[in-house]
C-alpha cells in the first residue's frame, strides 16, 4: 500500500493544552510509533500558548514528551483532523461551535472509546487493522452507537491543573486507560 498523501490525523483538545491533551498526544504517538500514516497532535481552547507540559503531569508520563509546546486551537486544525477528541463534553460543544462541520467526528475521549468498542464488533472484518479505511469506517460508525449507551459525567476527564498530585494521577491514569483502549480498538 502506498502511504496516503496526508497522515490520518487525530487532534486531542483540552483547555490549556499543557496537561491532559499533551499527555494523550504523547501516549498516542508512542503507541503508533511503528504505524505509518497516522499522526496525533493536540491544542487548547484557551491554550497557555508556548508553555511546555505541566511538570506534575510530565513526571507521571512514562513515554517521551511531545515535541510541540502549547498552541491555541483554530478551526483549520479541526478541519484538517479526521478525529477530534476532547476531554469534556463542554469542550466538545466548544469545538463544534467553532467548526460545526466537525460535529460528526468530534467526541470526548472516553465517549469515543466506548463507542469505538461497540462499533468495532460490526466492522467489516476484511478491513486491515492498520488501514486508514478501517479507521475512517470506525469513526464514521461510532456515532450510531450513541443509542446504545448513556451519555453521563463519566464521559469527562477532569482538569488537574492547579490541583494536588492526586488529581494529576487520576487524570493521567484516566487518559492512559482511555488511550490504551482506543489504540486497541483501532487495531494497534
Amino acid at each position: 500500500m502506498t502511504a496516503p498523501p496526508r497522515p490520518w490525523a487525530v487532534l486531542v483538545v483540552c483547555t490549556g493544552n499543557i496537561c491532559r491533551s499533551p499527555a494523550a498526544e504523547a501516549l498516542l504517538t508512542a503507541a503508533w510509533r511503528d504505524t505509518p500514516g497516522v499522526a496525533a497532535s493536540s491544542a487548547g481552547l484557551h491554550a497557555r500558548v508556548g508553555e511546555p507540559m505541566a511538570a506534575p503531569m510530565a513526571e507521571l508520563l512514562d513515554v517521551p514528551l511531545p515535541g510541540s509546546r502549547a498552541r491555541q486551537l483554530t478551526p483549520s486544525m479541526v478541519r484538517q483532523s479526521d478525529l477530534v477528541l476532547t476531554m469534556t463534553r463542554d469542550q466538545r460543544a466548544r469545538v463544534v461551535t467553532a467548526e460545526p462541520s466537525a460535529v460528526r467526528r468530534t467526541f470526548t475521549l472516553r465517549e469515543f472509546v466506548e463507542l469505538a468498542e461497540l462499533a468495532v464488533v460490526d466492522l467489516d472484518p476484511a478491513l486491515d487493522g492498520a488501514d486508514v479505511q478501517r479507521r475512517t469506517a470506525l469513526v464514521r460508525a461510532a456515532p450510531r452507537f450513541r443509542g446504545r449507551r448513556t451519555a453521563d459525567p463519566e464521559d469527562d476527564i477532569a482538569d488537574p491543573y492547579g490541583r494536588d498530585r492526586k488529581a494529576y494521577e487520576t487524570a493521567m491514569s484516566e487518559v492512559d486507560e482511555a488511550i490504551g483502549r482506543l489504540v486497541r480498538a483501532f487495531g494497534g
Binding site: 460543544a93 461551535t97 460535529v103 450510531r144
Partner: peptide
C-alpha cells in the same frame, strides 16, 4: 447523546450545510 452545539440554527444562519452537521444515530 449527541453534540447539540451544531444544528438547525447553524444551518439557518449559514454556518454550515445540513450535510455537514446532520448526525447519524442508531
Amino acid at each position: 447523546g449527541l453534540e447539540g452545539a451544531a444544528g438547525l440554527t447553524t444551518v439557518l444562519r449559514g454556518g454550515a450545510e445540513l450535510a455537514d452537521v446532520v448526525q447519524d444515530w442508531g
